[in-house]
């Protein structure tokens, strides 16, 4: 139950914090107020074996039972006043609309927005730190950090010298367009440049949530399995760029770069690859050149 208002939803909340600044917290869920003033009825549904319906206002009761198998079913009660509303709406429509608004905001500001996704520990933050160092005095780089907890990553980015805000999602497993919109307001993007949104480390959930980015970049590190694209296909399907990180460790691991690229290309033939070591900086020049080119295209 929500600890703030007592409603039945779980107490999901996220925080947007700037390094060195006071916390701003947003109660992150929706309330649905609805009263039933003229109805007195109860339903019980979804039991595997037997269930019962009481309709006090209709004056009938019926019970029936099902066999041992747990199956799904529909009930027609023949209520004369029941009617159908055709909705036909994408479940993520609200997020998609907000993402389009973010996209418009980024275009108006001349900002290239990048959604950086990967599993935890693939080197997203290290790649960002190095990118900030290598583009200093050339590109205005802004960062939104997404993690369930802590300011660790925002502090690292702050130390590397880029304006940053941290979103702590609490129990949330992904960023969404609303969070990014709110974080942007605190980031005060006042110059043309690149905004890199480091998503929560997770190859599953962030794949469905458009943040309004121009490009989605998925990182895979060679200490992971080279079959990651087959295991998490949706993320590779929705990405534009795949960065293969930690290539300095290739002599010590079984990761087959060509095989991983072939797996990823099966799902998304348009994926462009960069092979880098954020630590040794090998391959980072190509990555930085790509960022600069994409920024030029924003105008």
């Amino acid at each position: 139950m929500c600890g703030t208002c007592g409603c039945g939803q779980s107490d999901e909340s996220y925080k947007i914090i700037k390094p060195g600044e006071e916390e701003h917290s947003h109660h992150y869920h929706h309330h649905h107020d609805h009263t039933h003033d003229d109805e007195m009825h109860s339903h019980e549904h979804k039991h595997a074996y037997a269930h019962r319906h009481d309709h006090d206002d209709h004056g009938h009761t019926h019970e029936h039972s099902h066999g041992a198998d747990d199956h799904s079913h529909q009930h027609a009660h023949g209520h004369a006043h029941s009617r159908e509303i055709i909705v036909e709406q994408n479940a993520l429509q609200k997020n998609d609309l907000l993402a389009e608004r973010n996209r418009g905001y980024f275009e108006a500001k001349g900002v290239l927005a990048i959604n950086l996704v990967s599993s935890p520990g693939s080197g997203k933050t290290t790649l960002l730190e190095k990118t900030i160092q290598l583009t200093k005095d050339q590109i205005n780089l802004y960062v939104i950090e997404g993690d369930q907890q802590t300011m660790q990553d925002a502090n690292r980015i702050n130390n590397a010298g880029a304006p940053v805000v941290q979103i702590n999602t609490g129990n949330g497993c992904h960023l969404d367009a609303t969070m990014v919109s709110k974080a942007c307001k605190q980031l005060n993007i006042d110059k043309k440049g690149i905004l890199i949104i480091e998503n929560v480390g997770n190859l599953v959930c962030p794949s469905l949530f458009d943040l309004g980015e121009a490009k989605r970049v998925v990182i895979m590190s060679v200490t992971e399995g080279d079959d990651k694209p087959l295991k998490y296909p949706t993320m590779f399907e929705t990405s534009d760029i795949c960065v293969i990180n930690k290539i300095d460790l290739l002599p010590y691991v079984d990761f087959d770069v060509e095989k991983s690229k072939e797996f990823a290309s099966r799902i998304n033939p348009n994926l462009k690859f960069f092979e880098v070591s954020a630590k040794s900086e090998e391959g980072l020049a190509d990555w930085v050149d790509w960022l600069k080119n994409e920024l030029k295209l924003v105008g």
Partner: peptide, 20 residues
């Protein structure tokens, strides 16, 4: 060949409601 064009299976939607 890989990368076929998906015709169905991507749905994630609210289709309809029965209301009173």
């Amino acid at each position: 060949a890989f990368n076929p064009v998906i015709q169905s299976g991507k749905e994630l939607k609210v289709k309809s409601l029965q209301v009173e």
